[in-house]
Design a protein around this nucleic acid. Structure first.
Length: 218
DNA sequence: AAGGAGTACAACCGCCGAGAA
DNA sequence: ATTCTCGGCGGTTGTACTCCT
């Protein structure tokens, strides 16, 4: 754990900073008994001097039993690069495609290692915003241009607050689903669908193993 | 050996959306 | 219909560790 200084916030009296093993144990025990979620309830019932958000973060990024700790493998790195090109800084979506890795871990890895590595290899321009937009479905790119907001569940909201909902599965060999809940034109929708399919074809051309990936969204 | 610079990564912050009250 | 609470997300910060001079 990098942060060692712990302190109590004078405003709310809650503990901040590095977590103690005893605090981790409290969270693990509670989750084992009651399941995940209800983080606020957890702090109230256990007397843990942490805010619910902090507990959730600790669980998601560190305590979860399915987390793989250790070096990012070469195939994982390649997948991160590809998914980042596709999705941009949507770390949770990217993490959802890489079992055992957290969004925070991927984000850190990108910011501290990959970004620099790609810069050094003179490949970074490929990932600049403009080119990402060119790669995105037209409706998504347009929304980003006007009002760069991607809401939950892949809902893209444009300047007029028109929303398009993409239930997208980019799993290798799983097929593609893209549902449009807001009546965009069939042609545009078809283009988007083709775009996703092209992505999958491209993906399938790689040497990556299908079994390496999750097949459903988290 | 010392210390400054760079790196890695855990944790915090602010914003937003969903759902409950 | 409105307000409140909580969970989720991406961006950013802080600090231990490592490398370099």
């Amino acid at each position: 754990m990098r942060r060692s200084s712990t302190y109590y916030d004078k405003n709310d009296g809650l503990k901040k900073g590095a977590w103690a093993a005893s605090e981790d144990q409290i969270v693990k025990d509670y989750v084992k008994k009651h399941g995940i979620g209800k983080w606020g309830k957890l702090t109230r019932e256990t007397g843990l001097k942490r805010c619910g958000k902090s507990v959730r973060l600790r669980w998601m990024n560190y305590l979860r039993p399915d987390i793989i700790r250790g070096y990012i493998k070469e195939d994982e790195e390649e997948l991160i690069i590809r998914l980042h090109k596709l999705l941009g800084n949507r770390w949770s979506l990217i993490a959802g495609r890489i079992p055992g890795r957290t969004d925070n871990e991927i984000k850190n890895y990108w910011n501290s290692t990959l970004k620099r590595k790609l810069e050094q290899e003179n490949h970074l321009e490929v990932f600049k915003d403009e080119e990402i937009k060119e790669d995105l479905p037209s409706s998504v790119a347009a929304a980003d241009e006007e009002n760069p907001r991607l809401t939950k569940n892949n809902v893209v909201e444009d300047e007029d607050h028109h929303r398009q909902h993409y239930d997208v599965d980019v799993g290798v060999g799983v097929g593609v689903e893209a549902t449009n809940n807001n009546g965009i034109g069939d042609d545009e929708y078809l283009r988007d669908d083709l775009w996703w399919n092209n992505f999958i074809v491209d993906f399938n051309d790689t040497q990556l193993d299908v079994s390496d990936f999750q097949t459903d969204f988290p």
